[in-house]
């Protein structure tokens, strides 16, 4: 990890001093244990603040559409790069404005799960080999990193960045196999059970829109919930409105979700609707042979038309 971190710093110093980029987006040490925090670096004197750890959980590609007009160096994990590809395919960003510093990713640790493994507040955390060590007032616990990575990281088939300008460190062997476990499990439930799961999960939603804001693909200039004329949806917590919001958010990801898990990580209420995006991802794969963020060439399936398109589902 430290070696990777040093390489990242060296690379960034070079990019900035050669004037190849105006700003580098990476991570610095967070203010809380188990956290790193996004860092916008402009001055090479600050390069030693850049960190690389299993706590770099945010998808930094989400900042690319917000920081238009600047040349950006992006420290990017496999999933961040998939988002970059998806944004390029949707023509939201310019490839020549971005320098991708790709970093193969071993998965980011699920801080909430770790917090639940101990009694009391975690005051310190660090990585030691393959273990995450957490310490509190009267405990010290060692947890195997691999077991505590986010579910989306466990599912990840593209830990290595698919495109990059520089690759830091060695490529990893891809371990996960294509699987849609969550949606398959959900499909096995009776309609009543599915409905109650969905209603229960969405009932916790406070409509803070953290899921939307954390998602690189949610870049609409005006989200439908923010339109007051016409008004598509009410603003309160009536279950029908909350459910409507969550469904539309997921479905607007059709053919676009890269499965990075940023939405789940950001959600303060820990709402689990991953089966929804997994469902649309599987459908798009099966119907159109397309997966978001893997390929720069084909147009996104929902913005194009082919005569031989699957149409069995149109009844």
């Amino acid at each position: 990890m430290e070696e990777i971190q040093n390489k990242i710093r060296r690379e960034v110093v070079q990019l900035l001093s050669e004037g190849q980029v105006d700003v580098v987006i990476g991570f610095e040490q967070g203010s809380l244990p188990l956290r790193a925090t996004p860092f916008f670096l402009r001055d090479i004197a600050d390069a030693n603040r850049l960190v690389w750890s299993p706590f770099c959980e945010n998808n930094l590609a989400t900042y690319l559409t917000k920081i238009q007009g600047k040349r950006v160096g992006l420290i990017a994990k496999g999933c961040d790069v998939r988002s970059v590809v998806a944004l390029l395919v949707e023509k939201q960003i310019h490839r020549d404005h971005i320098v991708i510093i790709g970093v193969p990713c071993q998965g980011m640790v699920d801080r909430r799960r770790i917090e639940r493994e101990v009694d009391g507040e975690i005051l310190k955390a660090h990585q030691e080999g393959e273990e995450i060590i957490v310490e509190g007032r009267d405990f010290r616990k060692s947890l195997p990193r691999k077991e505590y990575i986010y579910p989306s990281c466990k599912r990840c088939e593209h830990r290595n960045p698919l495109i990059y300008d520089t690759l830091i460190g060695e490529k990893l062997v891809e371990e996960a196999e294509r699987a849609y476990h969550e949606v398959e499990a959900f499909e096995k439930l009776s309609p009543d059970k599915r409905w109650s799961h969905f209603s229960e999960e969405t009932s916790r939603c406070i409509r803070c829109y953290a899921c939307r804001q954390a998602c690189p693909m949610c870049y609409c200039a005006e989200c439908f919930v923010d339109s007051s004329f016409p008004k598509w949806i009410e603003k309160g917590l009536d279950p029908s409105d909350v459910q409507f919001w969550n469904i539309v958010r997921a479905y607007h990801q059709t053919g676009r979700c890269v499965g990075c898990g940023a939405c789940e990580r950001a959600c303060p209420m820990e709402i689990d609707l991953v089966y929804l995006t997994q469902k649309i991802n599987r459908d798009v794969k099966e119907l159109f042979g397309f997966e978001a963020g893997l390929d720069l060439d084909p147009p996104p399936p929902l913005s194009t038309y082919r005569v031989d398109d699957e149409q069995e589902f149109i009844k």
Binding site: I67, R207, A210, P268
Partner: peptide, 8 residues
């Protein structure tokens, strides 16, 4: 810059 603009 790093604020996502959510309402949490």
């Amino acid at each position: 810059e790093k604020c996502l603009g959510c309402g949490i």
